[in-house]
Design a protein around this nucleic acid. Structure first.
Length: 277
DNA sequence: CGGGACGCCTGTGAGC
DNA sequence: TGCTCACAGGCGTCCC
């Protein structure tokens, strides 16, 4: 569900609406990936600032008057979604695990698998937020990430290029779907060793990662919708994808059946003819 | 440092 | 109908 386009779409959908709101109360249901790191009571009275995104993490800065009061680092994991509603008194359903009730509305995390997280941190550059964010690679649309820098980073690795995209230590944002799609768009076999990707092909791959994420972003995060409706791959994204979830179906470009393999415990879909090592 | 396996959880669909 | 199994959009941690 939430890869970078979905997380960014989520951020845009509520950042302006919760900005400057004051926390009235908070509620933590079942435990998430990590402990909240503060009491829900300690959030009361804090003012929410502009929500930022780093990779697939969201950061909600908090303050008390003029004084910073840390912030909440949020992650949607595999099945999480955030909703912001003006109606504050909606009773939580089974998988609604965190509520931030504010003067402007209710920010609610729904996450059936609970791989997501909400963690209070005294600052974004201090633990526990800092060590989590420090491992992240470049933002995909950061101009500082040039084709040359991307190629150089690939040259240092020997594993399959698909795993490098998924790992996010070079560039963040492409999860399993968009990593597969970007590799297809670039015509690169996902099994290709990183250090065997030539400079021009690295440039093409980076451009494809950007184009794939940008397209999804332009569609408002094509795969983002209510989890109950979103389960499975039978939503809008299925129609958009060239390879993801299409094992056995003919490649749109050459009609060769799309293959599914497993790389580092994850499914990879690709066209064995269009994508070359 | 890189790279792969594992585990965290619940839900769903396929097959029997 | 109910069971078991494989699988699911992420990622930190552990080991080699």
């Amino acid at each position: 569900m939430p890869e970078l386009p979905e997380v960014e779409t989520t951020r845009r959908s509520f950042a302006g609406r919760i900005d400057s709101a004051t926390v009235v109360s908070a509620r933590l249901g079942a435990a998430l990936r990590w402990p909240l790191g503060c009491t829900t009571e300690s959030l009361v009275g804090c003012t929410v600032g502009q929500t930022e995104r780093r990779g697939k993490y969201l950061w909600l800065p908090l303050s008390r008057g003029a004084a910073p009061a840390g912030g909440l680092l949020m992650h949607l994991g595999m099945s999480g979604s955030l909703a912001f509603r003006e109606a504050v008194s909606l009773p939580p359903a089974k998988h609604d695990h965190f509520d931030l009730i504010t003067t402007r509305g209710l920010l609610r995390l729904t996450d059936p698998r609970r791989f997501g997280a909400v963690v209070w941190s005294p600052a974004i550059d201090q633990p526990p937020a800092a060590p989590l964010l420090a491992k992240l690679g470049a933002e995909p649309f950061d101009e500082a990430l040039t084709a040359e820098a991307f190629h150089t980073a690939l040259q240092r690795r020997r594993g399959p290029v698909k795993a490098a995209l998924l790992g996010g230590s070079i560039v963040v944002g492409a999860g399993n779907i968009y990593a597969c799609e970007a590799l297809f768009a670039a015509g690169i076999d996902p099994r290709t060793r990183c250090d065997r990707v030539s400079r021009p092909r690295a440039a093409r791959l980076l451009a494809s990662v950007r184009a794939t994420l940008a397209q999804a972003l332009a569609l408002g995060g094509s795969t983002l919708r209510d989890f109950r409706d979103a389960h499975g791959m039978d939503g809008a994204y299925q129609d958009q994808s060239s390879v993801y979830g299409r094992e056995g179906q003919p490649c749109a470009a050459c009609a060769t059946p799309i293959r599914r393999i497993v790389q580092s415990q994850r499914s990879t879909f690709f066209c064995p003819r269009c994508q070359k090592r």
